[in-house]
Design a protein around this nucleic acid. Structure first.
Lengths: 344, 344
DNA sequence: CTGTTAGCGCATTCAA
DNA sequence: TTGAATGCGCTAACAG
């Protein structure tokens, strides 16, 4: 089936000149008579000629396409990261191809193959909660295709990463709980294979220790982020003989789930039990009580990761520095810890 | 810069055979001695050979890539559509390239150019709220690149579309409000250039008429979906001498915004004023009171649109039928209209 | 069964 | 300033 798109040959024939001249005229090559260039560009415009990036990619071995691989598309977090990343990519003349993995390691591997097949010039990756093996990403490095991790990063790979100050943020969140008088602070933690889970956990532990509050391992529940399990955990916590007076959740969806269970139980938030989340997802400001949480600079994470990635583009692999950018977060205090004065 | 990826030539040289034999062995061509094929595939495996889709695309004039252009990534709606679409695309061996437009017409045009430059085999489009000119999409048809609209469709283009029964759903929603005793039902409507806005508006009007309730134009507020304006509108409605006893909002974010304003005003939901939204977005089930809304089969919308699009792939343009698929929605009754019995 | 050749659309030598 | 020739990696048509 013949192409329906106009090619350089079409223009050359029409204008009775060589393809190379047309090509030069179209690519802004200096050695073209202005008059010739005018004729060519005019006809190209008229015919709605579009350069075939495929052939150029074949020649240059560059596709000007960046792959973004995400663990999920469920909350507002990752889509917003994509927005930031895409803007930056567009600014630098790159397109973006996105795929999400439904938090499945196998899908992640499959998606990495898609990126390879599409000959992306680089990938921006956030790992699924299942991912423990990184061979599929190491293969990119072997092929000299740069990889940048963000949010859910791979510690053992020496590549650029964009993260937030998870440890500090968690520390601040727990400190905030302590400052409002809470002492038995539970932690609904993410799976230990995720670096962010461990960092938030450490921030939690250290905040307690620094404030001379003994750590009660019974108040720490680590789980796989499967939200259906939160109900059971929260009920368990509430039913303890010495129940917690606060919960620090590893992320907002977990915190939101927890809030609903606590409300059903009849306990008051924050008086009986305060709740803090992480990320300031969509919805966290209008759940009742509104959720105190750690706001991440979502779009900036995407933008920064893309900048880091594109920065490696023209460099030799020997110059790839495993730079780690740590962005700042902000504790957003809402009603789930401190009742706010209603503003009109 | 030489490619770092293994090519067929590399394998052919290593094995001292012709490139065509290697190619045949790798593509599953029947006329290859099993022994030869074994040798080739083994070496390909070992060298981590990856077919360069670029050259194949150049030959076949097909990229096996579908573009998805969305108005925004703000709510959970469009990302979920992408998930459905991507799954179906992957199933049929296609990749997907996504871009979102921040509800800007100009960005939509720019994104359409990106899709063209990337030589997508087809596009799945939902229009921005600003879009009134469709030349950029008509250009696709001229180039024989199929276009399928979904959700925010273009009426004047005769191409396949995937929508939900917006009219019926709106009708049901308003009928539901009437059934619980509401009579002065306001409508926060979307901009008239969006077909979905008009259909929902018509469903709203007809439901009132069918139930012998006079339409009060003062209760109908059409706006550009800019959420910051909702506060003003709702306050205006609440301040009327004869205020509405219900609000039907064109989408969930609007309804959620409305609920918050109403709560601040001290009015009770649903006793004083009931609220219904549209789409069942993330968050609608946990806002308080939880939002009665119309649930859309989000992933199925994506899947269906992709099926329709891929169905056109091998067909001649003369066979493209402007099929319109209308998917069913479901009224989800929650506390913003009828207080539910708490389930444990 | 395997090798040879041509060509997809373009940019880029080298010649003129 | 322009034209002709080469090749990016691969498949397919044509010979053996």
């Amino acid at each position: 089936m013949k192409s329906n798109q106009v090619t350089i040959v079409d223009i050359a024939n029409e204008l009775k000149m060589s393809k190379s001249t047309v090509s030069r005229a179209l690519t802004g090559h200096p050695n073209v008579k202005p008059e010739t260039r005018a004729k060519v560009t005019e006809l190209a415009e008229k015919l709605d000629y579009q350069r075939n990036m495929l052939s150029i990619s074949l020649i240059t071995n560059k596709t000007k396409t960046i792959g973004i691989v995400l663990p999920d598309f469920f909350t507002s977090f990752f889509p917003q990261v994509v927005v930031g990343a895409q803007e930056e990519a567009a600014r630098q003349g790159y397109s973006v191809i996105v795929s999400q993995c439904n938090e499945s390691y196998e899908t992640e591997v499959a998606n990495s193959k898609v990126m390879l097949a599409n000959r992306v010039d680089g990938v921006m990756v956030s790992l699924t909660k299942e991912t423990l093996n990184y061979d599929h990403w190491k293969a990119f490095i072997r092929k000299k295709i740069p990889v940048v991790f963000f949010n859910r990063v791979c510690e053992e790979m020496m590549v650029p990463k964009v993260v937030v100050n998870d440890y500090d943020a968690a520390f601040q969140a727990v400190k905030h709980l302590i400052s409002i008088g809470k002492r038995r602070i539970a932690h609904l933690a993410g799976p230990a294979q995720l670096v962010i889970s461990r960092k938030r956990m450490n921030g939690y532990r250290d905040a307690l220790i620094k404030n001379n509050i003994p750590i009660d391992e019974d108040l720490i529940i680590e789980f796989d982020l499967n939200l259906t399990k939160v109900k059971m955990y929260v009920k368990h916590l509430l039913g303890m003989t010495n129940p917690p007076d606060a919960i620090f959740a590893v992320n907002d969806p977990t915190a939101i789930e927890a809030i609903q269970i606590i409300k059903q139980s009849g306990k008051r938030i924050p008086e009986d039990i305060a709740v803090v989340g992480f990320s300031d997802n969509y919805g966290s400001n209008f759940i009742e009580p509104s959720l105190t949480t750690i706001a991440q600079p979502v779009k900036e994470i995407g933008k920064t990761a893309m900048e880091l990635l594109l920065g490696l583009m023209d460099k030799d692999i020997s110059e790839w520095k495993p730079l780690i950018k740590t962005l700042d977060t902000e504790l957003v205090v809402r009603n789930s810890t401190v009742k706010q004065v209603l503003e009109q």
